[in-house]
Design a protein around this nucleic acid. Sequence first.
DNA 1: TCAAAAGTGTTATCGCTACACCCATGC
DNA 2: GCATGGGTGTAGCGATAACACTTTTGA
Lengths: 231, 231
Amino acid sequence: METKKGYENYDKVHVAIDCVIFGYYERQLQVLLIQRDFEPVVGEWSLIGGILSEDEDLDAASQRILKYNTGLDNVFMEHVHVFGKVHRDPLARVVSVMYYALINPIDYNHKLIPRMGAKWFPINNIPKLIFDHEEMLKMAFDTLKKKITRMPIGFELLPPKFTMPELIQLYEAILQKSLDKRNLSKKIFSLKILRKHNEKQFNTSKKGAFLYSFDKRKYEALTKKGFLFEI
Amino acid sequence: METKKGYENYDKVHVAIDCVIFGYYERQLQVLLIQRDFEPVVGEWSLIGGILSEDEDLDAASQRILKYNTGLDNVFMEHVHVFGKVHRDPLARVVSVMYYALINPIDYNHKLIPRMGAKWFPINNIPKLIFDHEEMLKMAFDTLKKKITRMPIGFELLPPKFTMPELIQLYEAILQKSLDKRNLSKKIFSLKILRKHNEKQFNTSKKGAFLYSFDKRKYEALTKKGFLFEI
DNA sequence: TCAAAAGTGTTATCGCTACACCCATGC
DNA sequence: GCATGGGTGTAGCGATAACACTTTTGA
């Protein structure tokens, strides 16, 4: 800390939290965005964000901001990067801590209260964003893609019960390429983190597809061992 | 940003940069630490750190802090995580942005000016550290281990010319296990990012080992393609 | 009976791992 | 000539990727 007694002579800055909130519905990966209602960029779209309070843990702030904007808590959320250019926000010096979050549609259909014009946009049709938010989104999306090829975090984006074709379609939506359903389902099954139910879903086919749910305990046992796979 | 005009009503906090600086000498991975000279933890060891100025880019601050403490610039440095618990520093509210840096011994032997009792510690013999710095170090070390199994960043820790046995020994020091020299050298050679020199180094053997240097251009071409390998 | 999606196994290839001997040199 | 570390090739195995047909059922 160089050669000072305490921090009185050092600057303070605003610390923002910006969240790239991913959701999955209509067979597309979507991102929740909000329309700014204050200067200098009224009406433009931005990531969901907020400012850290002095008496608030950083992780608590990210949960608070997510809850305020979506009504959800206990959401999968992970820090990705920090953005700290001096003039990245023209209003003030703001260092932004960027997270991404994964939300599943059942939860948000029931509980989500979109505030201040929050709206879902498909990942391939994102409007112009303020500041460096496009860079943030790109980085978060890259992180999600990289991560999902190594760990089965996709479940966070699906409802509690889902079918194998849905899971595969989700992976295709995220990785933006088609995947071999035999190989992928084999790989997922081999992890033994799914519980098969004796129900079928008939939304998309006459034959119907079996429903599965995600066994969080087995999953956590795996990740503790540092288990990885690759698509 | 919730529903405010500007940021006047929001808190500001100190933003610190803390660097886990890795070096490699005496066949061991080492970490540069510093002895605090101010309250409340005078005499205890800490990571190299400093406070962000209001008119300074975050990345510039990390470079400044590294240069101030080691005399080096143009160093490989990467953000890992942010630590933001309210009371992590008992003196003040400080959000800390943690980086790790890789330094090679030729550079620091020539230029390093250890300040304020900065000292290298072998990774397996780290003293008690202040605040959450042990957690930071653990996370940085884990990140380094994970990263080096996928990308050949090890060169950053070696002098410009190095031998294959040195490179292998470095990997063993980082991953803390012995590796098959045939398989590892094969893998490195297959990347074609090394230039072989017509000189040998006789430090450690009578036969002598060929010197190589790292072809940064070819390496960057690879990483742009997102190339990965695994040890 | 046809259309549309679900479900399921096998084979070939590739990459990784494991493993041991000769080489060059200084002493 | 011997001790020391440097340098190199191969074979077996496991994992991945490629690939197509049968099942179910509603219309």
